[in-house]
Amino acid sequence: MSTVGLYVPGDGPAHRAPAGAKLLVLLVAVSAMLLAGDLRVALAAVAAAVLLYPLCGLAPRHVWRTVRPLLVFVAVIGVFQWYAADAQTAVRVCAQLVAAVLLAGLVTLTTKVSAMLALFERLAGPLRHVGVRPDRVALTLALTIRCIPLVATAYRNSREAYAARGLRGRPHLLVVPVIVGLIRSAEAMGEAMVARGID
């Protein structure tokens, strides 16, 4: 399984831009779009975001991969907006959402986790004065991302263990073995981190 929205190697303009600049541009662009509150602006933003992917050296499939997990969510919101307001509002809100996610995806797909964490550590630096350790928080975030494939593996392993015994591992039956598997991985990971002096 490939992790959703994670760095894709490349050397386009977006890859070379510093993480802070990209986040700032993202923030400004999305805020402007939301403040405009206009259907045409929202649709134009979607179109621009889609066009930016190839310009930044990302294959079109990344556009699809970025929005796919969101589709159900967007549909629900769309229906709700249509019901609560009108069709135009529904389309605008959905377009804004898709555009924002595509633009954010552009940042995460072209920025290494370590670069993002370094930026985060710098931004959160002042929190040091109130007892927060930015490096710890950054490490926790990195580990969370790292653990997504571990969860997928634990899930696959226990489903296969059921299947091998001719049983159908229904999702609720998998909860306990998956958690047990994860705790075991977490323990081993913790030990490996301590051994590497990352604690």
């Binding site: 992790t3 994670l6 760095y7 290494k112 986790v113 370590s114 990195a142 580990l143 991302i145 790292r146 571990l150 593996t153 991985s185 081993a188 990971m189 030990e191 490996a192 981190m193 051994a195 590497r196 990352i198």
Partner: peptide, 12 residues
């Protein structure tokens, strides 16, 4: 350790 998967901490 034996299990390389649990020794990998960062995404790349």
């Amino acid at each position: 350790f034996s299990d390389a998967d649990t020794q990998i901490i960062m995404p790349t």
